[in-house]
């Protein structure tokens, strides 16, 4: 079984920091962004940024998995 790499886990922590733990920093109405209260704007922004983070995490994981597969015969099938 492939265990997640530290690098990928650190990247995954970014969205948790952004929309969960840091709530006192961004839970405010002003400044309005495009007419939307700042807290709502912030979360929507991170809905869009999170797939980017996860894409980086995926790249890190993929490298490790491919390296591990290279040393094994057969390996795991790709999607």
């Amino acid at each position: 079984m492939h265990k997640p790499t530290i690098g990928a886990i650190l990247v995954g922590l970014i969205p948790f920091l952004a929309v969960c733990f840091s709530v006192p920093l961004w839970d405010r109405i002003y400044p309005l962004v495009l007419g939307v209260p700042f807290n709502l704007f912030w979360i929507v922004l991170w809905i869009l940024l999170t797939p980017l983070c996860m894409f980086f995490a995926y790249r890190i994981e993929r490298k490790k998995i491919d390296a591990a597969e290279g040393t094994e015969k057969g390996g795991v099938q790709h999607g």
């Binding site: 079984m1 492939h2 997640p4 995954g12 948790f16 929309v19 979360i43 999170t50 996860m54």
Partner: peptide, 18 residues
């Protein structure tokens, strides 16, 4: 609701494939 749905998928990346 927005925060937890987004983070649920992030978290899933680290154990669902396993």
């Amino acid at each position: 609701i927005m925060a937890y749905l987004t983070l649920a998928y992030v978290f899933s990346f680290y154990f669902l494939p396993q």
